[in-house]
Amino acid sequence: MTEETQEMNPMTAPEFAGLVAVVTGGASGIGLATARELHARGARVAVLDRAAADEPFLHVRCDVTDDDAVRAALDEVTARLGGVNVLVNNAGMGAQGTVEDNTPEEWHRVLDVNVVGIARVTAAALPALREAAADGQGHAAVVNMCSIAATAGLPQRALYSASKGAVLALTRAMAADHLREGIRVTCVNPGTADTPWVARLLDAADDPDAERAALAARQPSGRLVSAAEVAHAVAYLASPRSGATTGTDLAVDGGMQGLRLRPQ
């Protein structure tokens, strides 16, 4: 077998070879880990974020709450990379408190980023995704970033949980709407992950070490989820090798959603 033949063999080529992936919020945390993972698996990656990272990706500055900026960003991606096969809707923001604690302005802001932002970016990407799906043995997939907060009641997370519950329902609705167009839609539900946002929460706690231990202990695995573990799950769902998987949510939470271990 020649080197050229080996490169063309689908059994040896990287699984995302020839595909273009867009990751929103890809400049840090889970988004950056996801962009790196997709790039390592052969994808050409575009990161949409308000910040930039020193990585081998196409970086497009974009605020997912700005409709004009989102459409301009997707136009730039398709013009420079030739299309979109995979969209990872990772951009999001957190919130703490009960329903008494967050102002109406905070509710609007978090829902605009976490829920409407997904709809806004996906709508802008749909023409390119449809074209990718229709291209012979084409491939088109959307992976939304959801959360354990969508499936478990967490204290002091009313607004955040409401937004992620909406993401879960939106994922299933989008999967139903676009299945016959050849576009798969899924989501990942991380548990408490070791990310910059969680680090900021810990830094603000009265006893950061005790707070970290408490967050780790509530997951049956006894530790925080890593950004890389979430990225691997995203890559699995986005892959052409997952062609029969759509409308589902994949928990990456150390067993928090489904396990009830007896205390040691």
Rank of each mutant, 00 (worst) to 15 (best):
V77H: 03
R109P: 07
A52R: 13
V115A: 04
N102R: 13
A53T: 12
L74N: 00
L32T: 02
N85D: 14
A95E: 06
R50P: 05
V110D: 03
T78P: 11
L126C: 10
N89F: 04
W107L: 04
E76A: 09
H59N: 15
V110R: 02
P56D: 15
V86M: 04
V70C: 15
L111T: 09
H139W: 13
H108I: 07
R44Y: 06
P104E: 05
G117I: 04
V77G: 00
V99N: 00
A141E: 02
N102F: 06
R50K: 12
M145R: 00
T78S: 12
G117A: 14
H139G: 05
G82T: 01
V110I: 15
L87C: 11
A69Q: 15
T98A: 08
R50Y: 05
A128R: 00
R80W: 06
V88M: 07
T78D: 04
N89H: 10
A53V: 14
L87N: 04
H59R: 09
A53Y: 02
A133C: 09
D63P: 13
T103R: 11
R109V: 09
L126T: 00
V45I: 14
A79K: 06
D63S: 14
D49G: 08
A43C: 13
N90P: 00
A73R: 07
V77M: 01
G92C: 09
R36G: 14
D49S: 07
T78L: 08
D112Y: 08
D68H: 13
G83E: 00
Q96S: 15
A125N: 08
D66A: 11
L32D: 03
H108T: 15
V110H: 07
L81A: 03
A124E: 06
G42C: 03
N144D: 12
